[in-house]
Amino acid sequence: MASSASMQLSCRQATFRYPRTATPVFEDLSFEMPGPGFNALFGPSGVGKTTLARLLTGTSRDFAGEIRMDGIDRVLYTYNTERLPGWSAVGTHLERIVAPGQHDLRDRLVALFDMQPHLASRFAQLSLGQKNRINLIRYLLQDFQMLIMDESLANVDEPTREQIILGIKDLFPDRFFLYISHNVVEVAKFCRHILVLAAKGRARPASVVSGRDHNRDGTPDRERLERAMLEIVNAA
């Protein structure tokens, strides 16, 4: 299992445009985001959140500027419309991809995500929220230092989502999560840092806002939470 005391994600004047297009997806993106922790990537649709995620995973290196990931070697990216093959039950699939010695973690995750009753089902038989949960469990069982979760908890009801986020924070304190979500309350409440990509035409294309990083044991301070939310919205 990888562990890292200090991690840092930083970006210097990164510009990316798709081949044969004039307007860049984002331009002169600069930010620094310390890790580990449960962080978020926030911004209106179309500002390049998914594109940035792809650059971070290294699947595309065709950009200008610099992206540095100190203390982060293995990056995984998961998104909410992923599917599991239909030929076996989801439990069987899970069994196949769990590394030796990780069975205990799997059982804890399955319990945390409330998926025990559904392990014998086929993927197609699950609800949208269940589909996203089982998919996320697969990724959490892999060897990674950074996990980018692109709307991975979409269609999951709020109490379960809270339960899951808190659980992930307990179980993986030494990893760097980048949670892509449009839910400003959620990211302000649970995330340590929120990288906000601004809508096109704003002066600062990217800013890092501190969130409340709420844990299971504490009670959220309403006023501070609202301030964080305001900060996020202003930056976007």
Partner: peptide, 14 residues
């Protein structure tokens, strides 16, 4: 490619 299914296996080198 069936991207939505294959993505996981590609990401994890499986």
């Amino acid at each position: 490619p069936i991207r939505d299914i294959e993505h996981f296996y590609r990401m994890t080198g499986r």
